[in-house]
Design a binder for these strands. Structure first.
Lengths: 107, 107
DNA sequence: ATAATAGGCAACCAAATGGTTGCATGTCAA
DNA sequence: TTGACATGCAACCATTTGGTTGCCTATTAT
């Protein structure tokens, strides 16, 4: 089990989400590969990857002098299941209350 | 349309997520109501609510001297639809690659 | 009218964040 | 074996973040 807070924090940064996107397009990339085309130093990317690994969103393996990064979709899935779904259940009632309140404004 | 980045950033903080939880339990609460039982000043809560409103996760109406806060579940739903779903599609292949890699380690 | 209540605004602060540079280490290839 | 390549580590920096305190304003109730 891993802390959902770390996952949310990791997802809060656009650079990190884009790294996940890149790994989604092509899994198992090296650090240098992931750096290509980014307006950031390699060290900055490393820091982001450390955070992603800590949140269990990415798992990395050393292969010789290279480090291969793999996407772990489980935490993302859990955010969807355990958190987002909860709010989707109340969705319609919440919206109708909102609507009612918006209309009340014009009285 | 609202920026997904703001939504992710707003969701990154546990206090803010707990405010959303509270509104999910009971919609249309006042500022003071939302402050009850929290280890935070009213002003801190205000700041969080401002961020949640900016991200469109909460909509507020003034009613006399009170301010009523309503949950807007749409952005949360969109995170689920536009972002989380994308990663769930590649889930099985990503996991099998991970497994393959883990096994390769022991060679 | 006046006191109590609900909220807003602004200045300030410590800690976290996202980034940098410089240098060190480990691995592969010529 | 020696240079090039892939990555790691640490110090440093500016900005953002999450929080505080103090005071001001608007609305309601007595």
């Amino acid at each position: 089990m891993f802390a959902m807070d770390e996952v949310f924090k990791a997802l809060a940064d656009a650079s990190r989400r884009s790294l996940l996107d890149r790994l989604h397009l092509k899994n198992g990339q090296t650090l240098n590969e992931l750096c290509e085309g980014l307006a950031m130093t390699r060290q900055a990317v490393t820091k982001h990857l450390v955070i992603l690994e800590a949140a269990n969103l990415v798992t990395a393996f050393k292969h010789g002098r290279e480090k291969l990064h793999y996407l772990n979709p489980v935490p993302i899935h859990q955010i969807g299941e355990r958190w987002i779904r909860k709010f989707e259940r109340g969705k319609l009632t919440a919206l109708s209350e909102l609507k009612r309140q918006l209309e009340k404004r014009d009285e």
